[in-house]
Design a protein around this nucleic acid. Sequence first.
DNA 1: GCAAGGTC
Length: 863
Amino acid sequence: MARRIAHITKERVVKLVVAEKNIAAQKIAQLLADAGKPKNDKVYNTQVYRFTVDGEDWVSMGLAGHILAPDFPDEILFDKQNGWYSVSAEGEVLPADVPDGLARPPYDTKRKPFLANGISIKGWKVESLPYLTWAPIVKLPAEKEIIRVLKNLAKKADEVIIATDFDREGELIGADALNMVREVAPELPARRARYSALIKGEVTEAFNNLVELDQDLADAGESRQYIDLIWGAVLTRYLTLAKFGGFGNVRSAGRVQTPTLALVVERERERMAFVPEDYWQIRGMGEASGQEFKIAHTTVRFTDKAAAEAAFAHVSGAETGTVTAVAKRSRKQQPPVPFNTTALQAAAAAEGISPARTMRIAESLYMSGFISYPRVDNTVYPKTLDIEGIVKGLASGTPALAPVCKKVLAGPLTPTRGKVETTDHPPIHPTGQGDPTTLDGGQLKLYNLIARRFLATLMGPATIENTKLSIDVAGEPFAASGDVLVEAGFREAYPYGLKRDEQLPALAEGDVIDVRDIKLEAKQTEPPTRYSQGKLVQEMEKRGLGTKSTRASIIERLYAVRYLKNDPIEPSQLGIAIIDALSQFAPRVTTPEMTAELDADMTMVAEGKDTQDHVVDHSRALLAGMLDALIEHKDDLGEAISDAVTADARVGACPKCGKDLVMKTSAKTRGSFIGCMGWPDCDVTYPVPSGVKVSPLEGEAAVCPECGAPRIKCQPFRQKAYEQCVNPKCPTNYEPDLKVGECAVCREAGRAGGDLIAHKSERTGKRFIRCANYEECGVSYPLPARGKLEATGEVCEHCGAPVVVVETARGPWRICVNMDCPGKEKKPARGKAAAKKAPAKKTAAKKTTAKKAPAKKAATKKA
DNA sequence: GCAAGGTC
């Protein structure tokens, strides 16, 4: 056998197997190889697998999903005088009549795209949209390296076997690959292997029963591509051009993203339309055996104020209550089912990792061998999965999990099963391989979630015991309830989302307890909650929007184009305006029905009952039919969009002229600032703190009581958010200059007046220390942006620079102001005592490490 | 430089 492998040459291949991805190519090679392992090889840096089947030399390679991408040909980008869409000048041609009349008038391919009067970006032009609906589509190489390898291997092969995934997109990917093969080997025999699980039986069966590629199914997939592109491109261009907001401000739309956005907008509308209802609650504290617990009136919500007040009048002075009944009930919580992509995304979102980030991290964990393939619908482990081996691997590789692994191994190893069962890939699980200590923070967090979920699916239910006390307080019925986890079961491995125990004291009927703090609380019913990212992914799945591979990135896209903000998710005014516009003029693209109808059409094409051309042309005609109205209302809609963008940028009212103050971007520096919409008549501007995410405040907090300027919320990266007035001259921001020490450079030079003064820049809000003789000595030090500053009069024992105390959230922080000080303390000292500790010697500075700026340079800077 | 779908 070894000899036979040695005979494999790179020059001749009997059969070429083309899979959709590398892992599939590898698995197929392993499953089909005569004996021993397939030989890993590289062709132009792409992994391929060489092996023998009944003595024949085979090679398998993985694609990277779609290797061709559909697009409009470059020609349609050109302007009215020279572009092909000038056909309109020859007579009013209705879009519906165009398809066969796509005769192209002469155009100049050398001509550069142009931008004129804001009506056209690089050939995007509202007038061209009707023609765009009928424009031809070409498919161009998107994965050039892969195509190169594919063609190289095809030239040497006697037959090609398309072994892409067994679904619509897989058939299309295979058909695209075959088209590439045909460019170099037009006569090469080609067949298709259809397997639905990467296991021995399935794969050998598929390769023993090779079939023809299903062109109808591939056409269905391609129709999907075309329709998505046509609708997406036309509507995106239209929305973008309705009021061009500058480069980088694309207003996108699409078959999946727009209905998804509509879900969020719809929820926000429900919240806005929600009329809260008043209700009242009577609650207080109980105490027995020194243990406190919450008690509440058994009428959880009084809707009648008078009734609530009457009940409260009975109990308001009460000091004791009597236990009238004790009821204990235990309930079981079943262990969770195995993770598929959506469940993983939802669970990770609850732990603060967005679906998109989850997929990026999962991909990296998968590529480095820690977890299985992360894009799956399946929630049932296949019988072939070596569960015991994985648990053993976890036990030795992750010490923290070793005790629970041991318990699992002692049990029957019967996993839970979810509702969805597919056979292409197993649910997401740890592989039991790899050393988790090499992982970074996010990877470790996700890995732990996946590993713990896997163990949980092999464990028993958790038992929670609920105790309910019925208590009579001055004739009114009260109750107290406590949950205690009495048998951890799977919870020992999987604590996510577990509520804290609420233990009640041991009490019996007739016992008297102390009661206090009984209050009558006026409350209001809450509107429906906003979607979290995890919930939105689940809702998309429920409505058939997107796929396991695309949902996360589609949500991320909606954030990127600023239709969505915050988490839980809120639509921006822009997002709302987009939905308003499209539901008025192109309602089809705002609902999940477009996807449902597309799926139905695709089924017809796949079954040969309809054709790609017909289905795509029908969709084009539907879109074209909407364009007249869209174009007619271009200006209204542009205005609505631009108003919405202004509303999103608004941080408050101008204290000088009353117009809106908005976040703006400087054309010159690309930095942000706050400017008045009354410009140029009103010149009010404020700086925006750099390095923080700024958002407006609402209500009273939004206006500074001292100066009337807007107050904003500032969110530094991974730090606590704070609020501040945007006006640097406002007393709430103003700090008087503070002397913090003397300049060692000036003293050595015998220069008088070398006081080191702490300043705050009015323009940027930045704080720094500068010598009063700065022009001469150039001595300055940076300071932390926030925190009350105190001079100590001391100098640093290491470098002689002044020592100051900065008040931080965690207490005073004693620092030497010199960033380059050799004795630099890295972290703020904890506790008040820290300020008094570490006595700095009052020695004269031997040397200062402050940078000496040439006097001339400093003078120029100042000018 | 548009979408959504694969996967890297």
